[in-house]
Amino acid sequence: MTATAQLAPPPPAQQAALLEASGIVLRYPGQPQPVVETFDFALEAGETVSVLGPSGVGKSSLLRVLGGLQKPTAGAVMMNGKPLQGVSPRVSIAFQDASLLPWLSLEKNVAFGLNFKHQPELTSEESKARVDVAIREVGLTHARRYFPAQLSGGMAQRAALARCLARNPEILLLDEPFGALDEVTRTEMQHLLLKVVHNFHTAAILITHDIDEALLVSDRILLLGGAPARIIGEWRIDLPTPREDYIAELGAIRVEILSRLRGATQRRVH
Rank of each mutant, 00 (worst) to 15 (best):
M1T: 09
T2G: 03
P12E: 14
A16D: 15
A17P: 03
E20K: 05
E20D: 06
E20N: 10
A21S: 05
L26F: 04
Y28R: 06
Y28F: 04
G30R: 06
Q33M: 08
V35P: 00
A42L: 13
G46F: 01
G46M: 01
E47Q: 09
G53R: 00
P54C: 07
S60A: 11
L63Q: 00
L63R: 00
R64P: 09
V65L: 12
G67W: 08
L69F: 11
K71W: 08
P72N: 11
T73M: 10
T73N: 15
A74K: 15
N80A: 12
P83C: 02
P83Y: 02
G86P: 07
G86R: 05
A94V: 08
Q96W: 02
D97H: 10
A98L: 00
S99M: 14
L100T: 00
L100F: 10
S105D: 04
N109T: 05
A111Y: 09
L114A: 14
N115W: 05
H118D: 14
L122E: 03
K128F: 08
V131A: 05
V131Y: 09
D132K: 09
I135D: 08
R136S: 04
P148F: 01
L151S: 03
S152K: 06
S152H: 01
G154R: 00
Q157I: 00
Q157H: 07
N168R: 12
P169L: 11
E170K: 11
I171Y: 03
I171T: 01
L173S: 10
P177W: 02
A180R: 07
D182Q: 05
V184F: 14
R186A: 03
L194Y: 06
L194D: 04
K195S: 13
V196A: 05
N199E: 13
F200I: 04
F200S: 11
A204G: 02
L206Q: 03
T208R: 04
T208F: 00
H209Q: 07
I211S: 07
D212M: 08
L216G: 01
L216A: 05
I221E: 14
L222R: 07
L222F: 08
L223T: 02
G225E: 08
G226R: 03
G226V: 08
A227P: 12
R230T: 15
I237S: 05
I237C: 03
L239I: 04
P240G: 05
D245W: 03
D245I: 06
A248Y: 10
L250Q: 08
G251M: 05
G251N: 10
G251L: 05
A252S: 15
R254S: 08
V255I: 09
V255K: 15
S259Q: 15
G263V: 11
A264I: 04
A264Q: 12
Q266W: 13
R268L: 15
R268I: 15
